[in-house]
Computed example of a mutant assay.
Amino acid sequence: MRLAEAIADAMTRLQAVSDSPRQDAEWLLGDRLGYSRAQLFTRLDHELAPVDAEFFERLIARRAKGEPVAYLLGEKGFWTFSVAVSPAVLVPRPETELLVAWALAWLNDLDAPTVVDLGTGSGVIALALKLERPDAQVTAIDLSPEALVVARGNAQRLGVAIDWQTADFGEWLLGQGAAQDLIVSNPPYVAARDPHLASLRFEPQMALTDGFDGLNALRVIIANARHRLRPGGGLMVEHGFDQRPAVQALFVEAGFDGVETRLDLGGQPRATVGRAP
């Protein structure tokens, strides 16, 4: 079987589960063979060795059941780097890069800022902020020890030092400690009845949904964040595209000033910030 035939067959099988079946197939086959997608394109007439064909078949079978490509490859690109991922953490989304860009702009005029990432998962937000601002003191919190194993490994590979802590959102926010310049979070915000959860069944559900209306984690974070922020410090959260009114109301109710929501690259309301008075 030629590479072109293997890709075409995989595309047909992946159409029901993927918006980009060709890209998925090429990534998986290229990873197996050690080729980039561009290199793969110049070798489409090459024969696929039986051992490679068998391995590729197993990958496509798993992808056809809905397993994310990132889990099959073991890594995912984010911001300017790649991180290791596993079923212990969410697959990083491009939408979350908005949170990073906005956070960096917020920190732009601060020297040696202190930043906390609540619900860090694979660590991508904390890692991006530390890589862009080496002078920042970055703390990353997650309730899952398994997720922090992945995050610590990513930090080690990227050569950055972050204070990783295993804790619950509420417990950490109500605990004792230094006031922070910025708290950022991409918490579980998918409602339990959201039909999209069915397509995300391979990812850790506790990182996706609160099992209720999708606002519980946001309620806890927004209601208690001022306890751990310095005056003028910022709270920045990612949320669902249809949650802007509710999230803004929570910020106002908690006494934040300058509440503002920004759109992601798809034009959807995706992140909201408020300043502690």
Rank of each mutant, 00 (worst) to 15 (best):
M1I: 07
A4R: 12
I7M: 07
M11W: 06
Q15M: 14
D19V: 10
D19Y: 12
P21D: 03
L28V: 04
L28T: 00
L33Q: 08
G34R: 05
E47M: 09
L48K: 08
L48Y: 06
V51H: 15
A53P: 07
F55S: 15
E57H: 11
I60T: 03
K65R: 15
E67T: 03
G74D: 15
E75T: 15
V89T: 15
T96D: 05
L107M: 08
L107C: 12
D117G: 10
T120Q: 01
I125V: 15
L131R: 11
L131S: 10
Q137V: 13
T139H: 08
I141S: 00
S144I: 07
A151W: 02
G159V: 08
G159L: 11
V160S: 03
I162L: 11
D168V: 00
L174G: 12
Q176D: 15
A179Y: 04
A179E: 13
L182G: 01
V184A: 02
S185N: 06
Y189F: 07
A192L: 10
D194C: 04
L208M: 04
L218P: 00
R219T: 09
V220C: 06
N224D: 09
H227S: 12
H227E: 10
M236Y: 04
F241W: 15
R244Y: 00
Q248M: 14
L250H: 04
L250N: 02
L250E: 00
A254T: 11
A254P: 05
F256A: 02
L265H: 11
G267H: 01
V273G: 09
A276S: 15
